[in-house]
Design a protein around this nucleic acid. Sequence first.
DNA 1: GTTGAGCGTT
Length: 257
Amino acid sequence: MSRFGRSGPPPIRDTYSLLVLNITFRTTADDLFPLFDKYGEVVDIYIPRDRRTGDSRGFAFVRYKYEDEAQKAVDRLDGRVVDGREIMVQFAKYGPNAERINKGRIVEPVPRSRGRSRSRSPRRRYRDDYRDDYRDRDYRRRSRSRSRDRYSRDSYRERDYRRHSRSRSYSPDGYKKHGRDSLSPARRSPSRSRSQSRSRSYSPDDNKRRGRDSSASPASRSPSRSPPRKTSPSPERSPVRRKRNDDRSPRSRSPST
DNA sequence: GTTGAGCGTT
């Protein structure tokens, strides 16, 4: 959404987009508007936000009406301390539709034949990512924060184990049959996998171990072919049922009712 | 609850 609250983004064909990086996650377009507006005519300001929490991603786009003003803003506001952090202002390289931009102005349409120019960005656009199945996978774009493990790692350990599970599921020798099952990793009781994972370790030997066991005792290890339901040590511990039961009627557990 | 290289629409 634009800071001006229009129906949509204003035409950028006559505007010059500036990329503002290193801004605080609390900085909003309203905070940047007076700063950039002082150096030129700001057409629009847009700050990408997280689709989950809606928090700022740490950067913003400022559109100027004229290049000279945009350039001046870059020279003036680049390195400026905003909200306690030094922001970085520079001309946008890509447009909202992945257009190639020069000095904030579109110079070429979407490059389809050659993506080498954009190869400088190993990351893929999260837009194309979440619309596929961003729900199944965790938000990688925020997962980059490696400094987050300093305050709590156990809480996010589950995400790690999921990654391992996925990695294992995607193993070329992991599933020789149709990969359709891979689409439903939840049916194999992720909770159970976690219990095992916690009991043992995240050692990469897991896949090798499975392969070895599979050769030794395919019947006792086949998770899909022969689910050890009968051999289940505690069938009543089913986390799904228990969880659902607890979720549906947490109060029903009360003896008196 | 947090975080910090980069590129965009709720």
